[in-house]
Measured scan of single mutants.
Amino acid sequence: RLTVMSLQESGLKVNQPASFAIRLNGAKGKIDAKVHSPSGAVEECHVSELEPDKYAVRFIPHENGVHTIDVKFNGSHVVGSPFKVRVGEP
């Protein structure tokens, strides 16, 4: 089962990169992540390998409000996905 680490749920800033990590815990497959902005825009997140069992997911929010992040592994949502994060002040 995958572990999502260091996902900041609030206090993110517009046009500043945000990232979190995913540990695969021995699982093999493909991570896919997309961020949905409050206006409905959908953007791919950048996924990069940090070490053999750990990946970083990076995105840049372009507007204030609550964004939804879909994180999928081999086509299925990971536990807790979709995640909600707040950009800007509430």
Rank of each mutant, 00 (worst) to 15 (best):
H46W: 15
E49M: 14
R23V: 14
I31L: 11
T68K: 07
Q8Y: 04
T68W: 09
G29A: 03
A27H: 05
V66N: 10
H67E: 00
L7V: 05
G80E: 12
L7S: 07
R1V: 15
H67F: 09
V42W: 10
A33G: 10
G80H: 04
M5F: 14
Q8W: 13
V78W: 02
F83W: 05
G11W: 02
A56P: 08
H36E: 08
Q8M: 10
V71W: 02
E51A: 08
G26R: 04
E9D: 12
K30I: 15
S6D: 15
L12G: 02
K72N: 11
L12D: 00
L50K: 14
R86W: 10
N74Y: 08
Q8F: 12
K54T: 13
V79Q: 08
G11D: 11
A41S: 08
G26M: 05
V57T: 04
P90Q: 15
A27N: 04
S81M: 02
S76C: 09
D32Q: 09
G11F: 04
K28S: 11
K30A: 10
E89F: 14
V57S: 08
L2V: 12
H36K: 14
Q8V: 10
E63N: 05
P90F: 07
S76R: 09
K84T: 05
S76M: 13
E43K: 04
V14D: 01
L24R: 06
K84Q: 09
K28A: 04
K84G: 05
S37I: 13
N74A: 10
V66T: 08
S48Q: 12
H67Y: 12
V35W: 13
D32V: 15
S6E: 15
N15K: 11
R23I: 11
P82F: 01
Y55E: 10
V87A: 07
P90M: 07
V4N: 10
E44Y: 14
D53P: 04
V42K: 03
V14W: 01
A21T: 15
T3G: 14
I60K: 08
H46E: 15
G75K: 13
A41I: 12
P82S: 02
H36L: 14
E43I: 15
A18L: 14
F20S: 00
V79W: 03
E43L: 07
V14I: 09
G75F: 10
H46R: 04
S10A: 10
A21Y: 12
L2W: 00
V14E: 08
N74G: 11
V87G: 01
P52Y: 14
V85E: 10
Q8K: 13
L24Q: 01
H46M: 10
K34H: 15
E49D: 10
F83M: 05
E89S: 12
K72F: 09
S48H: 06
R1C: 13
G40N: 10
C45F: 02
D53G: 08
G80M: 07
H46T: 07
E9Y: 02
V78H: 05
C45D: 01
K84F: 06
A56I: 15
K54F: 05
A27R: 02
P90A: 04
I31R: 01
G80L: 02
P82H: 03
P17Y: 08
S81W: 01
G11K: 12
Q16V: 12
I31M: 04
K13R: 10
N25I: 12
S81Y: 02
H46K: 12
K84W: 02
T3V: 15
M5V: 14
K72Q: 14
E63M: 13
E9I: 02
E43G: 15
N64T: 07
T68M: 11
S19M: 05
A18T: 07
Q16N: 05
Q16C: 06
E63L: 11
K28M: 09
H36F: 14
G80F: 02
I60G: 03
N74T: 11
N15H: 02
S37W: 09
